[in-house]
């Protein structure tokens, strides 16, 4: 049994111009203790497919799938109250836009302690101690002081780390990290990735790492799914992907690293990857 199993997921949005298919038949799975990276171009449905797992899409979204199971339980047929018990505890997500995901009206400390209260049933003193410990783990200086500040008094990267602290607070079985280190410099990024990977080894949690940073993929993933325009293009273990990318889109993705720039303009995916020729069939 896989920890998370998705078969043929389709998400369509109602828009003024008619329905728009953001996710078009994606299947994937993650096991306990495994790190799956999802890479793919902007707008290819990475966040939307994971928000569908979390049940957090707006009402304009129509979600269907042949299967969507977490630890054997059917996620599509959960009642709202069953879902609330799982989401945020057993399945936690680090959202892509940290500043927008934190509540501007509550202090950072309150927001961390709230998940500990709801899901872990800790008393006030234990919650506070755990909140300080979490802020310390994500590398925020003076954690005690910082409990009392509001999100707008923190830097972008500090907000992102508060989100991470909230997501790992309840030792989830599955952690979905949506671009978790975009706001962080490489030194803090390294600290955060080490933290997540150690936690992952310690607790055996499964992890889905959505990222556009091929360096992050190289440093964390066991397996990689490459997505393009709502579809899965390629799936491979991390070494094969870097050693011998099969799909032209994947090759283009690796070639677009600024490190590999020649001349005074960067190669773009479209200059390497011809959608008409390569775009049709999913891998």
């Amino acid at each position: 049994m896989h920890l998370l199993e998705i078969e043929n997921l389709v998400v369509e949005f109602e828009t003024a111009a008619g329905p728009f298919r953001a996710v078009d038949g994606v299947s994937l799975h993650v096991d306990e203790g495994e790190v799956l990276a999802i890479v793919g171009e902007s707008g290819s449905g990475k966040s939307v497919s994971m928000l569908a797992v979390m049940g957090l899409l707006p009402w304009t979204a129509k979600v269907s799938a042949d299967a969507m199971r977490f630890a054997g339980r059917d996620l599509l047929s959960l009642t709202a109250s069953q879902r609330r018990k799982i989401i945020g505890k057993d399945i936690a997500m680090i959202f892509q836009e940290p500043v927008a995901s934190l509540n501007p009206c509550f202090t950072v400390g309150f927001q961390i302690e709230e998940v500990l209260r709801v899901h872990m049933g800790l008393d006030g003193k234990a919650r506070r101690a755990r909140a300080i410990e979490l802020l310390n783990d994500v590398g925020i200086p003076d954690p005690e002081q910082r409990l009392g500040v509001f999100p707008h008094q923190m830097s972008g990267g500090q907000c992102q780390r508060v989100m991470i602290a909230i997501a790992i607070a309840c030792n989830p079985k599955l952690l979905i990290a949506d671009e978790p280190t975009t706001a962080l410099d490489v030194t803090i990024q390294k600290q955060i990735l080490d933290l997540l990977m150690n936690l992952q080894i310690e607790t055996g949690m499964g992890m889905i790492m959505i990222t556009h940073n091929m360096g992050v993929v190289a440093e964390t993933a066991d397996r990689v799914v490459v997505q393009y325009k709502g579809r899965k293009m390629e799936e491979a273990d991390v070494l094969s992907l870097f050693e011998a990318p099969k799909h032209n889109y994947t090759k283009a993705l690796l070639a677009a690293l600024p490190d590999r720039a020649t001349g005074d303009r960067l190669p773009t995916i479209s200059s390497i990857f011809n959608e008409d020729v390569d775009g049709g069939a999913p891998a």
Partner: peptide, 12 residues
């Protein structure tokens, strides 16, 4: 926050 292809596009 941008994937590499869009990043390259924006930087260009």
């Amino acid at each position: 926050a941008l994937d590499l292809s869009v990043q390259a596009q924006v930087l260009n």
